[in-house]
């Protein structure tokens, strides 16, 4: 597993978000080269989203993962587990070396997030659960921020919209949802299955403030996840109620590996040693070009 954690657990977050994101991608490749492979495409599309949240937005302390006033993140798209594990390890919740045990019998890093892993708030993997859970977290304490990251295909689950109605009706201004809009699901484009567009309008109609960003632009993500709440669009909100925010992050499935970028076949991958080496070389070459 390449890369190293940014110092001891609890140290201030690394300022060099691109470097963190690069290491997370290397970890993802490493885990996909493990015994069971992994959800490569949807983990690669998620890297910048989780990196910004855990390293620059959320108030969290890896030494106190159960601190009552911590910010909360529920990874509703639980098949992004390997990205979450990599980001949590980089952030110091557990040793980076443990990532080598992903999907190996006897370990705790299961194919979908497990609560036994420090930093994982709730078990997810069956789609359509995260937003309702986050509603509960946000209700329990309104003095902390609660995030959930959804897949776009996941939005076909009706339970998402039950929960979305409730978030707005309850005035959960401390709740932010992020949609990893990579536009692909296992069988092909989301729009060829059960289409999601006009996605922003749908969320607005449910009473949410919508922000659309390039989901691989760390700065744009940071701004969207931290700017003041209402966006001057109170007309659709209920009087005296704060509106939840959804960030629609336009991403590329498999981002970072040209052989699978935007391609269905990268949804799940079991990489051979040679494929993994090639993938790491590609990632490093891109990284050198981006940050010489």
């Amino acid at each position: 597993m390449a890369g190293r954690a940014p110092g001891a657990p609890g140290d201030p977050p690394a300022a060099d978000l691109p470097a963190v994101a690069h290491r997370v991608r290397e970890h993802i490749v490493g885990m996909c080269a493990g015994p069971e492979g992994g959800h490569l495409g949807g983990s690669m599309s998620l890297v910048e989203i989780l990196t910004v949240l855990y390293f620059a937005v959320m108030r969290i302390d890896p030494r106190r993962p159960a601190a009552p006033d911590r910010d909360i993140l529920v990874l509703s798209k639980g098949h992004g587990a390997i990205c979450l594990y990599a980001v949590l390890a980089e952030r110091g919740f557990f040793p980076v070396a443990e990532l080598a045990g992903y999907a190996r019998p006897g370990g705790r890093l299961m194919g979908h997030p497990v609560r036994a892993v420090p930093g994982v708030e709730m078990p997810t993997g069956s789609l359509g659960h995260g937003l309702a859970l986050t509603n509960g977290f946000a209700l329990a304490r309104r003095d902390r921020r609660c995030f959930t990251v959804l897949g776009d295909g996941e939005l076909q689950e009706g339970s998402v919209w039950e929960a979305a109605m409730a978030s707005a009706a309850l005035g959960l201004g401390n709740l932010t949802a992020v949609v990893d809009r990579n536009a692909l699901q296992i069988t092909g484009p989301t729009e060829d299955a059960i289409g999601l567009e006009p996605l922003a309008d749908r969320w607005r109609a449910f009473g949410w403030t919508v922000r659309e960003v390039d989901g691989h632009d760390l700065g744009a993500l940071h701004r969207a996840l931290t700017q003041a709440e209402t966006d001057g669009a109170p007309e659709a909100g209920r009087a005296g109620r704060e509106r939840p925010v959804v960030v629609i992050a336009r991403t590329v499935k498999g981002r970072g590996l040209p052989s699978v970028e935007g391609k269905v076949r990268g949804h799940y991958a079991r990489l051979s040693e040679r494929q993994a080496e090639r993938s790491l070389a590609v990632l490093r070459a891109r990284r050198r070009r981006a940050a010489p």
């Binding site: 009552p68 708030e121 709730m122 309702a132 109605m165 409730a166």
Partner: peptide, 25 residues
Amino acid sequence: YLNLGIAEHNLMGTAAGLAASGKIP
């Protein structure tokens, strides 16, 4: 006291999030 409407999946999920935050719903 929260009436979460006619939406039982959200009801149970919200309860779980509250319970994970130290509440007893």
